[in-house]
């Protein structure tokens, strides 16, 4: 029982990290069919935002709370710039966008290396997040609980924004049918920019949160990116529901594989499961019904 709960918890925890990293990606990928390889670097920017904020503010607890909105703004601003300068111009060439954003990611990594240095930096975990909590017989680190809570909040906030605000309605309209949305008077360009801002901002928030459980280096973002992409692919494009289920499932799968084999075999196992899964559902868990041929 203890082992099972422990497993479940590790899975949920890994899943919530994946989810935080993938949530923004799912939004931008779903919205424009654009694969943003620089998303990992936005996460990295969030990590460094947390680091810088702590250097400036000092107190670990306060700085974390301040860093979360700043991280959102930093990530969002970077995303907005990228969208306006490059992605918008390559709208009809999604595969090329992938490579272009990879180049942007390379540059951002090198900027981080030149500014902060190649060695990893650490953010002090605030006092109230140290130690663990006893849940059903297993000890769970508070930082993990915080990340889970943050993931839940982020998903809820995003879902609420998409469902109930005018901006969210416009986003959903453009995802559903871009041309029809345009004829209805929605400026799809403005919506694209807005979506990119929110999606990249979420990456920044994820970055801030991830400093609690790991150190930050210029390649931090990259290590989360591929797993985040797999979550999006398995979950189905542009579906938050899909991203949530896929992230938790992949997290659980990863932790189960790791228990019965090694971490390195677990990655291979997860990959095989995803390829097999795509045999059953090539469009991912939840598909958006559109009438386009492509």
């Amino acid at each position: 029982m203890d082992i099972l709960v422990g497993q479940l918890f590790t899975g949920l925890s890994t899943g919530s990290i994946l989810l935080l990293a993938a949530l923004g990606l799912s939004l931008t990928f779903g919205q424009m069919g654009v694969v943003n390889m620089a998303h990992g670097e936005f996460i990295m920017a969030g990590c460094y935002t947390a680091y810088v904020t702590q250097q400036v503010v000092g107190g670990a607890g306060v700085s974390l709370l301040i860093a979360l909105p700043i991280g959102f703004a930093v990530g969002g601003a970077m995303g907005l710039i990228l969208e306006v300068l490059l992605i918008r111009r390559l709208y009809h060439r999604p595969l090329d966008t992938l490579l272009v954003t990879f180049g942007v990611g390379l540059i951002l990594q090198q900027v981080a290396r030149d500014v902060f240095g190649a060695p990893a930096v650490n953010v002090t975990v605030p006092q109230f997040l140290r130690g663990g909590v006893e849940i059903l017989g297993t000890t769970v680190p508070k930082t993990r609980l915080f990340i889970m809570a943050l993931a839940v909040v982020a998903v809820a906030a995003l879902a609420l924004v998409l469902r109930f605000t005018p901006a969210g309605r416009r986003i959903r309209a453009v995802v559903g049918n871009r041309d029809l949305a345009e004829t209805a008077g929605i400026s799809s360009r403005a919506v694209d920019a807005g979506t990119f801002f929110i999606g990249s901002g979420l990456a920044g928030v994820a970055g801030v949160a991830l400093t609690l459980i790991g150190s930050t280096s210029p390649t931090t973002g990259q290590s989360y990116l591929v797993d985040a992409f797999l979550v999006v692919v398995a979950g189905g494009l542009g579906r938050i529901k899909g991203a949530v289920v896929a992230a938790v499932a992949l997290g659980a799968l990863q932790s189960v594989f790791e228990t019965y084999s090694t971490a390195s075999l677990a990655k291979v196992g997860v990959f095989v499961v995803i390829v097999v899964f795509l045999q059953l559902r090539p469009q991912g868990l939840f598909t958006l019904r559109t009438r386009s041929l492509a």
């Binding site: 999604p94 595969l95 797999l230 390195s264 075999l265 990655k267 291979v268 997860v270 390829v275």
Partner: peptide, 18 residues
């Protein structure tokens, strides 16, 4: 399209970690 690109990339990542 992008799905295939991501899968092939994930394969490279998994292979290196393996």
């Amino acid at each position: 399209g992008a799905y295939f690109a991501i899968l092939s990339q994930a394969l490279a990542g998994a292979f290196a970690i393996f």
